[in-house]
């Protein structure tokens, strides 16, 4: 009962005095009743303050000329100098394009594949085959990025890699996969699909399991074919889950997996593999150009945040549901 009351109170932006008093009273009662719970939350909340919110205040470095002696707050202001430097940097458009293309390509492939996989798995009978497919396709999820990238390097190696041996056996010239900038995105995206498609399918399988069984009964009585059943019952059934995942992925478009890109990079494929995240790491931590790197990172975060808000708004208007 208290919970309902509290929620309706906190959601009011402008609080009239009477309600404010009621709210204060509710706070006091809650504090007296649940002081142990508040105490419990102190440490974890401290974690969020120290490692999440204080870094957010450090973003002011993006507008400062950082020097170690003066510290974050003592360093002189330089306005938007770092941002101008970044926008006028000849690499700017390349970085933006690389980040964007890589994510978009990843989304275009990585979003539908788990859905198709789930639809297929949903069609076949429970049994050894189904269980084996699930067991095997989930497994790569647990492989670390370092191991994943070494597997890619070994399997696609120019001379001894299994893929090139196959190409040679088929009479084709071997390909130096990781030395070719035009192949970088394909390698990145499809190895991601290999690693994550099975695991991502779990959510859709759950959505399919939750579809009202009477719909299938009715479809059978009406003589619907398997294909019609998939198109008219299964796909609408997993739409809500798919939408949420689409929003989340679009909202993360500018955050490509730094770890994997960084490990797959080499001087030969840098023209397509250098993304904003790897650039920030190199400029910021390796060259100790803190202010500039913070500005670049902030630029990335802001674009991302705006993207998330707009995608959510669009989906909300279009389908009536969003993240919030």
């Amino acid at each position: 009962m208290h919970g309902v009351q509290n929620r309706s109170l906190t959601s009011n932006a402008a609080v009239p005095p009477v309600q404010r008093r009621a709210r204060l009273r509710a706070a006091r009662t809650s504090l007296r009743r649940h002081w142990q719970l508040y105490l419990l939350m102190v440490l974890p909340l401290l974690y969020f303050v120290v490692f999440k919110y204080i870094p957010m205040t450090n973003i002011v470095m993006a507008f400062k000329e950082y020097n170690v002696v003066a510290g974050v707050w003592g360093s002189p202001w330089v306005g938007t100098k770092h941002f101008e430097a970044f926008f006028n940097n000849p690499q700017f458009w390349t970085l933006l394009k690389n980040t964007f293309y890589l994510s978009l390509y990843g989304l275009a492939v990585g979003f539908p594949v788990p859905i198709i996989l789930a639809l297929c798995l949903n069609e076949i009978r429970d049994g050894l085959f189904k269980r084996s497919v699930q067991l095997v396709t989930y497994a790569p999820y647990f492989i670390s990025t370092v191991v994943m990238v070494s597997m890619i390097l070994l399997l696609l190696a120019p001379r001894l890699g299994v893929v090139n041996q196959l190409l040679v056996a088929l009479g084709q010239p071997p390909v130096n996969f990781l030395g070719r900038p035009d192949l970088f995105r394909t390698i990145y995206v499809w190895s991601d699909v290999w690693q994550y498609a099975g695991y991502s399918a779990i959510i859709y399988l759950a959505a399919l399991a939750g579809v009202d069984p009477t719909l299938y009964e009715a479809a059978r009585i009406d003589g619907a074919s398997r294909w019609q059943k998939i198109v008219y019952i299964d796909i609408p059934g997993l739409m809500p889950a798919a939408l949420i995942i689409l929003i989340l992925s679009l909202g993360n478009l500018m955050f490509v997996g730094f770890e994997k890109v960084f490990l797959l990079q080499n001087p030969l494929n840098l023209s397509t593999s250098e993304v904003i995240a790897t650039y920030v790491y190199k400029v910021g931590l390796l060259n100790a150009n803190f202010g500039f790197a913070t500005a670049v990172g902030l630029f990335n975060s802001v674009i991302n945040f705006v993207l998330l808000l707009s995608v959510n708004a669009i989906v909300r208007r279009w389908s009536g549901r969003g993240l919030w």
Partner: peptide, 17 residues
């Protein structure tokens, strides 16, 4: 708490902390 999932300080500001 959930807000930190949507927006973060970024690599360098966290490193500084």
């Amino acid at each position: 708490v959930t807000f930190t999932m949507l927006f973060s300080g970024g690599l360098i500001p966290t490193y500084m902390v």
